[in-house]
């Protein structure tokens, strides 16, 4: 289990983001939870997050939007989307945009762990580059 990997979570539901954070912590990750995108963007985490878990915010889909903006600004943080709704077209769009995983609530522990592993795999080359 990696220990020095920083994972950031953005979700406006306090109970949910704390639960994700606690679960990550039990897995041994270093986690930081944010209530809003703004809070995340104005934190130093933007620079050193290895994996971002963000609420899709259906139907505005600000999650995808955030990922795109981060990529455009040069922060290609591997991102996992969590949505309360399963929408295949949105899922396809998200994956085409380079999102690692599209999970629906309530999400399966193993699935989440698998997604995080792929995200961290993806994150490694970046670390070498920087």
């Amino acid at each position: 289990m990696p220990t020095e990997t920083l994972i950031s979570i953005i979700d406006d539901d306090e109970d949910f983001r704390e639960a994700v954070a606690r679960l990550m912590k039990s897995w041994g990750f270093t986690v930081e939870a944010f209530a809003s995108e703004l809070a995340f963007l104005s934190s130093p985490n933007v620079r050193n997050t290895s994996c971002l878990i963000v609420d899709l915010h259906y139907p505005q889909m600000t999650g995808i939007e955030l990922h795109r903006r981060l990529v455009e600004s040069g922060y290609a943080i591997p991102t996992i989307l969590i949505s309360a709704h399963l929408d295949d077209s949105v899922r396809a769009r998200a994956l085409a945009d380079g999102i690692i995983c599209y999970l629906t609530k309530p999400c399966d522990e193993d699935a989440l762990l698998g997604c995080i592993s792929s995200a961290l795999e993806r994150a490694k080359p970046d670390e070498y580059r920087s």
């Binding site: 949910f16 994700v20 606690r22 679960l23 912590k25 039990s26 309530p106």
Partner: peptide, 14 residues
């Protein structure tokens, strides 16, 4: 779904 997701995750964590 929100609290339910939180519950399953908290349970896994514990």
């Amino acid at each position: 779904k929100q609290p339910l997701s939180a519950m399953t995750m908290e349970a896994s964590a514990s």
